[in-house]
Computed example of a mutant assay.
Amino acid sequence: MLITTTPLGESDHLKSYRMVAGATVFETVFPEFSVDDLTAALFKSSYGAPKTLPIWFEGAVAQVVVDKVEAVWVQDAPEPPVPGETYAYHENPDWFVEGWVEDRALRVRAYVMAGAADDISSIYIQRIPPTPDLEGHVNLVSYESEE
């Protein structure tokens, strides 16, 4: 596994994914679950038998118990968008997720980037800090396959 950290210029990009300064963001580009698993974790879980999502976090796979999911519809627009132009939305949404790391009193948020209908391309996950710094720099650690 190759681990890299991000330059300062990426901080605003990470904030667009609802990540905040005050806790490191971890990115994985080899997710171990699908969009179907995500919906099952929210809608087919019970208190006694939660369906968890395996997400690389702080150097290991964490089992995340999901309690909030929001679809994020992304436009196919250049950066920055051209004023007066209209752009189509991607066919499938990305997902903003919140939940708990199983067996730890640790609340997390994740931005899940989806490609095709059931394909997830990467995930950004962060411990929700008790006192976020909305103006500070967001640090990123990336986990990448060695292939």
Rank of each mutant, 00 (worst) to 15 (best):
M1A: 15
M1V: 13
M1N: 14
L2M: 14
T4L: 10
T6Y: 08
T6W: 08
L8T: 15
L8N: 15
E10R: 13
S11P: 09
R18H: 13
M19Q: 05
M19E: 01
A21N: 02
A21P: 03
G22Y: 06
T24P: 06
V25N: 00
F26I: 06
F26Q: 02
F26G: 00
E27G: 05
T28Y: 00
V29R: 11
F30K: 10
P31H: 03
E32N: 13
E32H: 04
F33W: 03
S34I: 04
D36H: 14
D37I: 02
D37R: 00
L38H: 04
T39W: 15
A40N: 11
A40I: 05
A41T: 03
A41K: 04
L42N: 01
L42R: 12
F43Y: 14
K44Y: 09
S45H: 03
S46A: 05
A49T: 09
P50N: 04
P50E: 00
P50R: 05
W56Y: 15
F57E: 00
E58D: 13
G59M: 05
A60H: 10
V61A: 04
Q63P: 00
V65A: 03
V69S: 00
V72A: 10
V72Y: 02
V74N: 04
V74Q: 07
V74H: 03
Q75G: 10
Q75D: 08
Q75R: 13
D76N: 15
D76A: 14
A77G: 04
P78E: 09
E79W: 12
P80N: 12
V82W: 01
V82T: 14
E85V: 05
T86D: 12
Y87S: 09
Y87I: 11
A88M: 08
H90Q: 15
E91L: 11
E91H: 10
W95R: 01
V97F: 05
E98W: 09
W100F: 12
W100P: 00
W100T: 07
W100V: 02
V101P: 03
V101I: 15
R104D: 10
A105W: 08
L106A: 09
L106Q: 14
R107E: 11
R107K: 15
V108Y: 00
R109W: 01
R109Q: 15
A110N: 02
A110Q: 02
Y111V: 08
M113P: 00
M113C: 11
A114S: 14
A114H: 03
D119R: 11
I120R: 00
I120S: 01
S121V: 14
S121A: 12
S122K: 11
Y124H: 14
Y124C: 06
Y124Q: 09
I125F: 03
Q126L: 13
Q126E: 10
R127Q: 12
R127N: 06
R127K: 14
I128H: 01
P130V: 12
P130R: 05
P132M: 04
D133P: 02
D133M: 04
E135H: 08
H137E: 12
N139T: 10
N139W: 07
N139I: 04
V141I: 10
S142R: 09
Y143T: 11
E144V: 04
S145N: 08
E147H: 12
